[in-house]
Structures are given as structure tokens and as C-alpha cells.
């Protein structure tokens, strides 16, 4: 077996609660092990070299969306990023931009997503009849259910937000995550909201008409969600719905 590599990490460090602290990059070295992920390496660093290092992991399996960060310039999930993917053995870690910094690599995506959900009313709004839980459920077209799940696979990791140029310029932009969720409820036959209702929340500069279609969201989404298709679909739908009849 060949000798293990040394991985050189350069990590953004800043404690916004410490008035004397300033943002800086700090270098660390870790001996690579087979199958090592950024999750494993960061925990080793914390346990063996610097116990103050802040980062967020929960499921460590690419399911929960907690650990998005910028790795060598690209936003992605750290838990499933193998160190072996970096032939030079140099890894630069930065916190996800576009979110409130808690410290080091930890950002407050939870607060952002909750506010987005409240603002866009991202929950099913069914009609109240036929919802007796003791009786047979309403049938749903099996294909519709499968399509809904496809759109629902978003894990709210925030990668699309950090990869979005529009969002960087317009703080109120709902981002691909917001539009994907709207698309999901728009598709759902159980939801009573009409295109006109959705027009009021995303038929504007903060929604579909603000998107510059640079599609960083599509490129970076760790769940390979069809952002491009859904944004285009919603944009056309909203244009057709617009009171000014854009189309």
C-alpha cells in the first residue's frame, strides 16, 4: 500500500461574537485515510488540533442538508465530499455565502429557510372536504405522486442560494429553493392555490422575473433537482397569468 497523503486544509476562521477577532484563513494538515470525507477530516481536526473549530453536520450521509460549505470555490455538501477527489491534496473551506455567519464554517440556513417558508406559505393548502382520516384516502395519479417526490427531494442545504448571482445582488430574491417549492405545490392536485395566487408571490423581481438564468443553482444542486426546467416552467406560467399578458 502506498504511503498516505497529507491533505492541506486552508479554513476560514472567524468568531463574529468576539469583538477582537478578525476573519482569517488558517492552515491545517491531516493524514489521509481511505474513504476520508471532509466530514471525517474536520472532526479529526477538531478532536486533535483545534477544539474551537465550528461546523455543522447532522446525518453525515448527504440527506439532511446541514453541512453545505464552499469547497475549493464550489458550494456543496461536505459530508459526502471525498478528499480523494482533490489530486493536489489542497482543500480550501469557506462558509456558505448569503447566510448569517454563526462562526467559522457554520451558517444559519435554518433561520433563512423558515422565513422563506413563512413568506411564501410553503405548505399544502388543501380544501378541507374529504379529509376524514378514518375513511379511504383520495386517490392520486401514481405519476403525479412520483413527480411530486422528484421536486420534493430538496434538502434546504442552501447551495442554490449561495450559487445564485441574482441572490447576491438582491437580498429579497426567493432563490431556486423558493421557486422549486412553489413549483412543487403548483403541481400538487391537492393544493387549492391557483396560478394567480402564486403570481402574487413570485410573479415579480423577487421571483421568476428576477432570475438572470445563470443557473448556478442547476450546476451546484447536490440533489440534481431540475431547477432550469422548473424556473422556465414557472416563468412561462406566470407570464401567462400576468394581468398585463406578457405572452
Amino acid at each position: 500500500m502506498s504511503q498516505a497523503r497529507t491533505i492541506r486544509f486552508s479554513i476560514f476562521r472567524f468568531d463574529p461574537q468576539d469583538p477582537n477577532d478578525k476573519p482569517k484563513m488558517v492552515n491545517y494538515e491531516v493524514t489521509e485515510a481511505p474513504g476520508m470525507t471532509v466530514f471525517i477530516a474536520l472532526n479529526m481536526l477538531r478532536e486533535q488540533q483545534d477544539p474551537s473549530l465550528q461546523f455543522d453536520f447532522v446525518c453525515r450521509a448527504g440527506i439532511c442538508g446541514s453541512c453545505a460549505m464552499v469547497i475549493n470555490g464550489k458550494p456543496t455538501l461536505a459530508c459526502r465530499t471525498l478528499t480523494a477527489n482533490y489530486p493536489k491534496g489542497e482543500i480550501i473551506l469557506m462558509p456558505l455565502p448569503g447566510f448569517e455567519l454563526i462562526g467559522d464554517l457554520s451558517v444559519n440556513t435554518g433561520k433563512f429557510m423558515r422565513e422563506l417558508a413563512e413568506r411564501l406559505q410553503l405548505w399544502l393548502q388543501p380544501n378541507s372536504i374529504d379529509n376524514d382520516i378514518h375513511r379511504m384516502e383520495q386517490p392520486m395519479d401514481p405519476d403525479e405522486a412520483a413527480k411530486l417526490y422528484e421536486l420534493e427531494r430538496c434538502v434546504e442545504c442552501g447551495v442554490c442560494v449561495s450559487a445564485c448571482a441574482t441572490k447576491q445582488m438582491r437580498d429579497t430574491f426567493v432563490g431556486a429553493v423558493g421557486m422549486m417549492k412553489i413549483a412543487r405545490f403548483e403541481l400538487d392536485s391537492r393544493d387549492t392555490r391557483t396560478a394567480d395566487d402564486f403570481y402574487h408571490v413570485i410573479g415579480n423581481q423577487d421571483g421568476v422575473f428576477g432570475c438572470m438564468t445563470l443557473l448556478g443553482c442547476q450546476d451546484a444542486c447536490p440533489k440534481d433537482l431540475p431547477h432550469m426546467t422548473q424556473i422556465a416552467y414557472l416563468r412561462r406560467k406566470m407570464a401567462l397569468t400576468s394581468p398585463n399578458r406578457i405572452l
Binding site: 388543501p126 383520495q138 386517490p139 401514481p142 405522486a145 412520483a146 411530486l148 417526490y149 391537492r190
Partner: peptide
């Protein structure tokens, strides 16, 4: 069974029988 049906009303896209 009640919980499954309630969750359908809350938006879960349960896989359906074809």
C-alpha cells in the same frame, strides 16, 4: 392507517398503486 391518511392531507406524496 389514520396517520398515513392524515399525512396525505398534509402533503406527503405517498407512492401510489398503479
Amino acid at each position: 392507517p389514520k396517520a398515513v391518511r392524515e399525512l396525505a392531507n398534509w402533503g406527503v406524496p405517498w407512492t401510489r398503486v398503479t
